[in-house]
Structures are given as structure tokens and as C-alpha cells.
């Protein structure tokens, strides 16, 4: 059985409130909050990027277990805001972590599901005996054009997962994936900000792929939503995950703990994984967790995860950590995002 041995997350200190952005553009903040269900989002500082945040979350994941770093022979870096268009951040990360050179590294891209896709490949490399451990990172300093809905939702965060086959805290019981060519959200080479198809990002994109991915997995495993203690979905805004969960048959109680988007925003490749971080603060041994990511372009990876008794002693605080925050103004936000 392959699964997660250790985890780490990093959320930058800064937050910007929806009303701070809304008042610049003359929008009614209450209307915006009602439509997106986001009160505030996390913003990385001007000197932070997906790599520096990945280093924080990966250091956290590696510090809580006694693992010989030379046994980590797979390092995969998933992002849509890679520091370079060409030059692997995965090796920069591995080097700073002191992982020595006989490892496979590559950077992955599939919009918001770059990390979960990598997770699937990585567990296979462990199962095949190539490596005892694999380090996966999902890390983004999410960008959105001004005066666009993404300005309220695109956020920064990073999650790192150390995969292995012994002393697991979460077993990867099974997984499925669903892919198609659906251009709902994209960014061309050389463009700073992503573009999207507006309402096209809904039914034919997010909902279609998540529903099909989830249903494939339910069929494969014979499980149903009622068998899970928690459901965690990719969160582009506060409404979509609630709606898709309901349409699949999950209750509000099953997903409420995972809805980090309400107060942290959508950190792209880290989005669903941050939801998982919130859930792991509470989950108990034996709980089944349904994790379902979505990546525009488009595709969805779904996972059945089982919590083991090892989670208890390796549990990390989440609620307390994210309470340490500092609000910034709109001009400071633009400065941090290097938009001015």
C-alpha cells in the first residue's frame, strides 16, 4: 500500500479582503461576497514565489519525519506560476532541501491539478520499486487580471506531500482520473495573466469533469458518498464545491471543514490540497476522505484516502496557524503581485 507519510503546508501571512478590492472598482462588496462566497484571500509577499513557498511546505513535511533524504528519488513540482518557463523548480527545491542527486525530478502543469496528477505518477514509481519515497508539491502565487473575477479568488499557498509505503498516515486506497480537451481557463506563453471562458468554466468544465471523475471512482470501488467522513473538492470559488458536492450526494456536514476558499481564496494547484490540510486537523483513524481535484483544460483526479492511526501523532495545527495574518491594502496587493 502506498500513501502519504508526511505533509506540510505554507500559507503566506498577508490577506486582502474582498471589500478592499471591490471598493476600488466601485462594486458592492456584499454582492461580490454573496456571489463568490469569499471574504478574503491569502497573498504572498513581493519576495515570495511558488518555489519559496514550496520550500516552506516541503521543509515542514520533511521535518516531521525521520527520513533519509537520499531515499527520496522522486521530486515533482506542480504549479501554474512556475518561477521559470524553462528551468525546473523541482531541482531548485530538491537542492535546497538537501536531496542528493540520484533522483527523478520534473515540473508538472495541468492548471489547478498539476500536483494531484503528479501524485498519481509518483505513487506508481513507489509501487514499482523505483523509489521508497516521493515528494510532491503543489504551489502557486495565483495571478488574476485586475477588474476580473479572478482578482477576488486567485490566492497563494503551497502544500507538500511525502509519499511512501511504510508508517503511512493516509493510505491511497484507490484513484481515478478523467481528462478531455476543454479550454475553459488558459494562459498563453508570455502572457502574465490567465484568461477564462466566463460561465463556460462551470457546467461543461468544472462540474462535468468532477462529476465524471467521481462517478468513475465510485463505480470502480463500489463506494458511495455516504461512506466518506469528508469530501474535499477543488475550490475555484465558494459556490462551485458546495454545488458539486451536493449534486454528487455529499452532505453539507461532510464538506464544511474543507471549504478553506472562504477565507484563503483559491491557491490553484494547492487549492484542494489546502482543503485536505484543514480536514486532516480533525480526521480520525479509519475515516475515509474523498479528494477530488480539477484542472482546467480539463481534467479531474479523484482519490479515496483512508486515515490510519499514525495521523494522530503526526497531526499538524491548521486553524491556529492561519489565524496569524495581516491585512493589506489594494496598492500593497498590487505591489506584492508585482503588478505595479
Amino acid at each position: 500500500m502506498v500513501g502519504i507519510v508526511s505533509y506540510g503546508f505554507y500559507i503566506p501571512k498577508y490577506r486582502i479582503k474582498t471589500e478592499e478590492i471591490a471598493k476600488v472598482w466601485g462594486k458592492n462588496p456584499t454582492d461580490v461576497k454573496k456571489s463568490l462566497l469569499i471574504d478574503e484571500k491569502a497573498v504572498a509577499g513581493v519576495d515570495e514565489d511558488s518555489l519559496t513557498m514550496a520550500f516552506e511546505s516541503a521543509s515542514s513535511a520533511l521535518s516531521s519525519v525521520d527520513v533519509d533524504r537520499n531515499k527520496i528519488k522522486v521530486v515533482l513540482f506542480g504549479s501554474e506560476t512556475h518561477p521559470y518557463a524553462v528551468n525546473p523548480a523541482s531541482t531548485i527545491l530538491a537542492e535546497f532541501l538537501g536531496i542528493e542527486k540520484n533522483y527523478l525530478a520534473y515540473d508538472t502543469e495541468f492548471a489547478c491539478k498539476a500536483a494531484t496528477g503528479a501524485l498519481i505518477s509518483a505513487q506508481a514509481l513507489i509501487k514499482s520499486g523505483f523509489s521508497d519515497y516521493a515528494l510532491i508539491t503543489g504551489s502557486d502565487k495565483g495571478m488574476g487580471k485586475t477588474h476580473d473575477v479572478l482578482e477576488y479568488t486567485a490566492a497563494s499557498a503551497s502544500v507538500s506531500l511525502l509519499l511512501g509505503k511504510d508508517d503511512l498516515i493516509l493510505e491511497i486506497v484507490d484513484f481515478e482520473t478523467f481528462s478531455s480537451d476543454t479550454p475553459d481557463f488558459w494562459r498563453r506563453e508570455g502572457m502574465r495573466y490567465p484568461s477564462h471562458g466566463g460561465r463556460f468554466t462551470g457546467k461543461p468544465s468544472y462540474f462535468y469533469h468532477i462529476e465524471n471523475s467521481a462517478k468513475s471512482l465510485f463505480k470502480k470501488t463500489g463506494l458511495a458518498p455516504k461512506d466518506f467522513s469528508y469530501g474535499v473538492f477543488h475550490m475555484p470559488n465558494g459556490k462551485f464545491p458546495v454545488q458539486v458536492a451536493k449534486s454528487l450526494g455529499f452532505s453539507e456536514a461532510q464538506i464544511k471543514d474543507s471549504l478553506t476558499v472562504n477565507y484563503l481564496g483559491n491557491s490553484y494547484t494547492a487549492s484542494a490540497l489546502i482543503g485536505l490540510m484543514a480536514v486532516l486537523e480533525k480526521a480520525k483513524a479509519g475515516d475515509l476522505i474523498f479528494l477530488c481535484s480539477y484542472g482546467s483544460g480539463a481534467g479531474s483526479d479523484s482519490f479515496v484516502l483512508r486515515v490510519t492511526k499514525n495521523l494522530e501523532k503526526n497531526r499538524k495545527e491548521f486553524t491556529k496557524i492561519i489565524k496569524e495574518k495581516k491585512y493589506i491594502s489594494y496598492p500593497t496587493y498590487l505591489k506584492f503581485m508585482e503588478m505595479i
Binding site: D47, E48, D49, L51, T52, P83, F96
Partner: peptide, 20 residues
């Protein structure tokens, strides 16, 4: 000590990560 970008060179140059 933490890892951050330490200087902003040109848009073309290698990114300098360092200690803050």
C-alpha cells in the same frame, strides 16, 4: 532564517534566491 527572492535582476536573468 527563511528562503526568499533576494534581488530582482532583469526579467531575463536567473532568479537569485537567498536568506532573509
Amino acid at each position: 532564517s527563511i528562503l526568499r527572492k533576494v534581488r530582482s535582476s532583469t526579467d531575463e536573468g536567473v532568479i537569485a534566491y537567498g536568506v532573509k
